[in-house]
């Protein structure tokens, strides 16, 4: 009688791996690989999902105080209608929050109080100032400025704030200070752009000490009479109305007076398109488009762009001895 004793390596056919699984093992490997690669993406998708707040003026925290009354300064007439409030606070550039114009939904998550700004470098009296203390100490005025973006669109908005020169009077620049460097706050918990570690964060902008002292250089803390929302650079920013908008640093945490010309964020990224001076000039096109006219946000009307954005009478003298500089990019 034949007795079959199975050897150790022999297994019944019923335990064999089905053929279709063996022949598709490459597909299984691919699926496993894709799963590993996409898992972090899926996890982050939930974390970074943009939930749209209903109110672009929402304050974070909700206790951010109203601004004290501000006198309207009529020395700088805009000469055109104000932009709509809603457009001004929902059509924004703020690279730390993204490249699209709808960054307000994300930016609103950035707390704007408490907020301090350090003023240091070549000054007699450096200090760290609470924004609300500065508002009380210096006082506020309202100015309506034209805004000209390098992307060939424009707005007209009423800023509430104070002249930068009044802050400089407090810290007293030394004679050796030639430039002013503006540093945007870094809030990685809300600024998704900071994850791009290869960029030269923090965002830096700068100007000469003469430009900083010009009467037009303004430090807004408000817009349309309300506290400046983060998507517009709140709670504290700088505005140079005669330059392309990217020069006007947002959400400023540090101001440094220095004898070295600051290299700005955009100058580091694309110096051929975004230089240090960036004064508005319709005759000098951007490398990729004309600057001869601008589209007004809201009406979509296209209007001619003016040299120095129409503020030449106040600032042209700043550049009379700088004709060898690249003043228009």
């Amino acid at each position: 009688m034949l007795i079959k004793r199975p050897r150790g390596w022999e297994i019944p056919d019923s335990q064999a791996t089905p053929e279709h699984l063996v022949t598709n093992r490459r597909a299984l490997m691919a699926a496993a690989g894709a799963g590993v690669m996409l898992a972090p993406t899926a996890a982050r998708a939930q974390f970074w999902r943009r939930s749209e707040p209903a109110d672009p003026w929402a304050r974070t925290p909700a206790t951010v105080p109203d601004l004290p009354p501000a006198m309207r300064n009529t020395r700088y007439p805009a000469g055109r209608d104000l932009s709509a409030e809603r457009d001004a606070v929902t059509y924004n550039n703020f690279y730390e929050f993204g490249s699209d114009k709808g960054i307000w939904t994300t930016a609103l998550k950035m707390p704007t109080r408490p907020w301090t700004v350090k003023v240091e470098g070549m000054v007699e009296s450096p200090g760290e100032f609470d924004v609300d203390d500065l508002i009380r100490r210096i006082g506020l005025e309202e100015r309506t400025y034209r805004l000209r973006c390098v992307e060939a669109w424009g707005m007209t908005v009423p800023w509430t704030g104070f002249q930068l020169s009044k802050l400089l009077d407090i810290v007293k620049p030394l004679g050796s200070a030639k430039f002013v460097r503006f540093e945007t706050a870094q809030k990685p918990e809300v600024m998704t752009g900071l994850r791009q570690s290869w960029y030269p964060w923090p965002h830096i902008e700068g100007c000469t000490i003469e430009e900083a002292g010009n009467e037009l250089t303004f430090m807004p803390v408000g817009l349309f009479g309300k506290p400046l929302p983060p998507q517009n650079g709140g709670p504290f920013r700088v505005v140079f109305p005669w330059k392309y908008g990217f020069k006007s640093g947002k959400s400023i945490a540090r101001i440094t007076l220095t004898d070295e010309r600051p290299k700005s964020f955009w100058e580091t990224l694309q110096a051929s398109e975004y230089g240090f001076w960036a004064n508005v000039n319709p005759e000098v096109p951007h490398p990729r488009w004309s600057q001869a006219s601008e589209r007004l946000i809201g009406s979509n009307e296209r209007v001619p762009t003016r040299i120095f954005n129409g503020y030449g009478e106040f600032v042209a003298g700043l550049y009379s001895n700088l004709q060898n500089e690249r003043l228009w990019a």
């Binding site: 993406t41 982050r44 998708a45 970074w48 943009r50 993204g98 709808g102 960054i103």
Partner: peptide
């Protein structure tokens, strides 16, 4: 889509 950059 803005989210495409952040998520993918």
């Amino acid at each position: 889509a803005p989210e495409l950059w952040d998520w993918v």
